[in-house]
């Protein structure tokens, strides 16, 4: 389990730093050493710089089409057969029916969890969908 040794070492480092933080009067602690970066904060500590960096789009990557936000997958609620789904490009609002599935002779509507545009229908009508598989994907309205 050698690949875990680095993780264990990092966890041990974090435990030591937690001890340091608790015995000090500090509100937060941020350490970067080699390839390891650790941040700890008390309740009133500052924001986490590691998360801020991660959320900022890397400048080297071309900005995506301006109106298309992150995608939300709409999963099958349980095993069912797909009857019908709205077409790619359809604008939908949260709560609106985007697909109909069938269990034996009973039909059930699947609602959009978010507002946005359908960017992909991931399943074919007539297909047996297992629980959790993606029916279609909605790009959240920007």
């Amino acid at each position: 389990m050698t690949e875990n040794n680095a993780a264990i070492a990092a966890i041990d480092d974090a435990r030591a730093l937690l001890d340091t933080l608790l015995t000090s009067g500090w509100q937060q602690l941020h350490v970067a050493s080699g390839d390891t970066e650790i941040f700890l904060a008390r309740k009133d500590g500052g924001i986490n710089p590691m998360r801020v960096v991660a959320q900022r789009p890397a400048p080297a990557i071309a900005a995506p089409a301006a109106q298309v936000g992150p995608e939300t997958a709409v999963p099958a609620p349980h095993v069912a057969t797909l009857e019908h789904a709205l077409a790619v490009g359809t604008h939908v609002t949260a709560g609106q029916t985007v697909a109909t599935v069938r269990v034996l002779d009973e039909r059930e509507d699947v609602a959009a969890p978010v507002s946005g545009m359908i960017v992909r229908v991931d399943a074919e009508p007539g297909a047996l969908l297992e629980y959790g598989v993606t029916l279609l994907s909605i790009a959240v309205a920007a």
Partner: peptide, 14 residues
């Protein structure tokens, strides 16, 4: 075939 979530009422008992 995955029927449903872990809870038996929504999978093995339906």
């Amino acid at each position: 075939i995955v029927l449903g979530p872990a809870a038996a009422a929504k999978s093995y008992l339906d």
